[in-house]
């Protein structure tokens, strides 16, 4: 409907919206709605559609077409832009994920409007939307506004308060029949990473990070063990990645991933500014380092000055005890 706030659905590529959508839909409701979802996919499930309703979408615009997988800007942007032009939402919000980050940038260019990327707060000021986004590696915050509608923004995961699922609520589903352009980009293969069995770094509610203090690749098993107990992803500092101890996709920081978990636990990480750039919006920060002067203690909520190799096994044991109760 004209004037609605649209939330672009990120899914697990198997027909289920990701949990981060509860955050985007929750924020859209807080901004006053009307809250609608737009779902481009090759496969949507009924449960997935129900889930969007439960999280507060009153309507789902569904573009379901085999040509939409895998994501390609050239196949997604034209039908999406057409729908925006026809329905005139006032805002289009999406979570920051690898494909939606690119999609939103291309969509903004196609529509000729501004994009506020990687926002951490949104607020209405009169009848204008104001977005807050970290800049300069998170050293400052910038408030931005748009010259015209629709306002396009991407939202950093784990920052916005999620909508509580309400089982009774349902969304009406409007299937959009769109022409999908034939793609120039041809998928050759998808190389899956060996699964660690732990959550994905950017989605995890708890992240454990190991730095140069881990001393070698073989020692990460103790962090993975802790991760298994508390359901955490295990990341690393650049020093550890550059040393070849961990693959690059696990790097946290300015040249790695930006994370914003409920709980960050750093072991043997000094807290260089570029590392902080990727994790300083974490809600609770714990640091274990044997150097009391390590800069990470300046932003940590809780710190233990000790040898991590003594702390980690104890901590895993305590977590086990707590969670098994």
């Amino acid at each position: 409907m004209a004037g609605a706030i649209w939330c672009v659905v990120e899914d697990d590529r198997k027909g289920t919206p990701k949990k981060v959508m509860s955050e985007v839909l929750g924020e859209a409701a807080r901004l006053g709605g009307p809250v609608e979802a737009v779902w481009l996919t090759d496969k949507a499930t009924d449960d997935g559609l129900k889930q969007l309703g439960a999280w507060g979408a009153t309507k789902v615009w569904l573009l379901e077409n085999a040509g939409l997988a895998p994501y390609r800007g050239e196949t997604w942007v034209p039908p999406f832009a057409e729908l925006v032009a026809k329905e005139s939402p006032k805002a289009v919000l999406a979570p920051v994920t690898s494909r939606l980050r690119e999609l939103m940038a291309r969509l903004a260019a196609k529509l000729g409007v501004g994009l506020a990327a990687d926002t951490v707060a949104l607020a209405m000021n009169g009848d204008k939307l104001v977005a807050t986004r970290p800049i300069y590696a998170g050293k400052l915050l910038s408030k931005v506004t748009w010259a015209k509608q629709p306002w396009l923004a991407t939202l950093r995961p784990n920052v916005f308060k999620p909508a509580e699922a309400q089982a009774g609520k349902a969304a009406s589903v409007e299937r959009v029949s769109a022409t999908i352009p034939s793609p120039q980009m041809k998928l050759v293969e998808r190389r899956e990473e060996a699964s660690t069995g732990l959550p994905e770094l950017t989605e995890a509610e708890i992240v454990i990070s190991g730095g140069r203090g881990m001393k070698g690749p073989e020692n990460y098993v103790i962090l993975e063990e802790m991760g298994g107990v508390i359901g955490a992803a295990v990341g690393a500092s650049r020093a550890a990645v550059d040393a070849g101890w961990r693959p690059h996709r696990f790097q946290i920081g300015q040249t790695g991933r930006t994370i914003s978990p409920k709980l960050y636990l750093g072991f043997g990480v000094s807290g260089a500014i570029q590392h902080l750039a990727g994790m300083r919006t974490s809600k609770v920060i714990v640091a274990v380092n044997k150097d009391p002067e390590a800069p990470i203690f300046k932003i940590a909520d809780y710190g233990i000055v000790a040898d991590l190799f003594e702390v980690v096994p104890e901590l895993t044991k305590e977590f086990k005890r707590l969670l098994e109760k």
Partner: peptide, 20 residues
């Protein structure tokens, strides 16, 4: 510009931490 900065702000200070 399609997007304009209205203000820059310093980060809200984190509550002081505790060394256990």
């Amino acid at each position: 510009p399609e997007l304009s900065i209205t203000a820059l702000e310093a980060l809200p200070a984190r509550p002081p931490g505790r060394i256990i």
